[in-house]
Measured scan of single mutants.
Amino acid sequence: EVYKVKIKIERVLPNGEKVEEEITIEVEGMSEEELLALARELAAEPGVRIKEIEIEKLPP
C-alpha cells in the first residue's frame, strides 16, 4: 500500500519569526502508525511544531 503523507509544520526562526512549511512524501510498505512516527521524527527539530498531519491512502 502506498500512502501520501502531508505534514504542516511551524518553525520558529532564531529571530523569533514564525514560518509555516509543508512537507509531502509518498511512502510504501508502512503502517499508519509507522507513518505517524516518521512524521513526528521529521518535525522533531528544536523550534518546530507540527500543525497538521494528513495521511491519504493512494489507489493501487
Score class of each variant (00 low, 15 high):
43 A>W: 06
17 E>K: 11
24 T>Q: 04
17 E>F: 12
6 K>L: 11
3 Y>T: 03
5 V>D: 00
52 E>K: 06
14 P>G: 10
2 V>P: 03
57 K>L: 06
4 K>S: 07
4 K>I: 12
21 E>L: 05
17 E>I: 14
48 V>P: 00
42 L>G: 01
5 V>Q: 00
6 K>D: 01
4 K>M: 09
43 A>S: 13
8 K>Y: 10
38 L>N: 03
49 R>T: 13
18 K>A: 06
53 I>K: 00
46 P>G: 06
2 V>Q: 04
28 E>Y: 06
40 R>G: 07
28 E>L: 08
10 E>S: 03
5 V>R: 00
41 E>F: 14
48 V>E: 02
10 E>D: 13
12 V>G: 04
11 R>N: 01
47 G>C: 12
45 E>F: 15
40 R>A: 08
16 G>Q: 04
15 N>Q: 03
17 E>S: 06
58 L>D: 02
25 I>K: 05
48 V>W: 09
21 E>M: 04
13 L>T: 12
36 L>Q: 10
50 I>W: 01
2 V>S: 07
48 V>R: 01
58 L>Q: 09
14 P>V: 12
39 A>S: 04
19 V>T: 08
3 Y>E: 00
7 I>V: 12
9 I>Y: 10
28 E>W: 12
54 E>Q: 09
39 A>Y: 09
1 E>F: 09
60 P>E: 05
33 E>M: 12
8 K>M: 06
60 P>Y: 02
33 E>I: 09
38 L>K: 11
47 G>V: 01
7 I>L: 08
31 S>A: 11
22 E>T: 11
57 K>T: 08
54 E>C: 12
1 E>K: 08
27 V>H: 04
38 L>F: 13
50 I>G: 00
6 K>W: 10
22 E>L: 06
54 E>H: 12
45 E>R: 07
18 K>V: 08
36 L>N: 07
49 R>K: 15
19 V>R: 11
5 V>K: 00
60 P>W: 02
25 I>G: 03
18 K>M: 15
25 I>T: 03
49 R>Q: 14
46 P>A: 13
60 P>H: 14
58 L>K: 07
43 A>N: 08
46 P>Q: 13
3 Y>A: 03
51 K>Q: 08
42 L>P: 01
21 E>R: 05
40 R>M: 09
48 V>Y: 04
36 L>H: 03
24 T>I: 11
8 K>A: 04
50 I>S: 00
12 V>W: 06
44 A>T: 11
31 S>Y: 11
31 S>C: 07
27 V>K: 08
